[in-house]
């Protein structure tokens, strides 16, 4: 392990490149989703295509969670309720263990945010404006008006829940930076954290870039063919 000249502490890999690229791509996609709906009456074509991209990103992450880098795998960060509660209690007493990857609560937030992003994209497939003239998801034509109305309601309700979770997520990151002096954003950008006695692993094993590319191609195929098979 070579040490960078500017840093006195050794750095270790925490998150591999595909995981980081996915993470920031999802941030951008969610921002585009909001902007393409709200700014100046919106841009339906961008909004609908962006929805497919969100779906691709989520499917990619699900695949990467099975075969990706060590800290990207669900088995490495989805903690049992018992572990999660124990971590939360330890956190309150300022005695929590430090994690190289997602801590137990952070891991659950990843699961929740992925689920909400998926729910937004899936309800969007069936959503349309009341008149079905302005914006229409690719599968809105395959279902009844009542289903479109339901999808519309869910799309909006889930958005509110997603916003609450994003606020919690950002608040937790700020809490770690300010109170715990653990800067997670640079780690999610560079992929590195200072070497330390982490609870989960000393260093992460990155997933292969070729495998990540294959996951992305598979995700695109699953989403596009899936929508086509459903009649969109």
């Amino acid at each position: 392990m070579t040490e960078t000249t500017s840093s006195s502490t050794a750095k270790v890999l925490a998150w591999d490149l595909p995981t980081r690229l996915f993470k920031w791509a999802l941030v951008v996609a969610i921002a585009v989703a909001w902007a393409s709906d709200k700014i100046g009456g919106g841009n339906p074509a961008v909004h609908v295509t962006n929805g497919r991209i969100v779906l691709v990103l989520v499917v990619f992450r699900l695949l990467w969670g099975l075969v990706g880098g060590s800290t990207a795998r669900f088995t490495s960060f989805v903690a049992s309720p018992r572990t999660s509660i124990a971590y939360a209690l330890a956190l309150l007493r300022n005695r929590e263990g430090h994690y190289l990857g997602h801590n137990p609560l952070g891991g659950w937030m990843v699961v929740v945010l992925l689920g909400l992003a998926a729910a937004m994209a899936l309800t969007g497939l069936f959503n349309a404006d009341v008149d079905r003239m302005i914006v229409e998801g690719p599968l809105a034509r395959t279902v009844s008006d009542a289903t479109v109305t339901l999808a519309h309601k869910l799309h909006h309700k889930i958005f509110d829940v997603l916003m609450i979770c994003i606020v919690l997520h950002v608040a937790a990151v700020v809490f770690h930076a300010v109170v715990k002096k653990e800067r997670l954003v640079p780690a999610m950008v560079t992929g590195e954290k200072p070497a330390a006695a982490y609870v989960d692993a000393a260093r992460a094993t990155p997933g292969a870039i070729g495998l990540a590319s294959a996951c992305l191609v598979a995700a695109v195929a699953i989403v596009w063919l899936g929508i086509r098979a459903a009649g969109g």
């Binding site: 100046g40 009456g41 841009n43 009341v130 914006v135």
Partner: peptide, 19 residues
């Protein structure tokens, strides 16, 4: 033409009640 639909939507979003 998309600008016209966007004008429709901008108003419907804020001023038309959802069924």
């Amino acid at each position: 033409f998309p600008k016209i639909l966007a004008d429709c939507k901008a108003c419907h979003d804020d001023f038309r009640l959802k069924k």
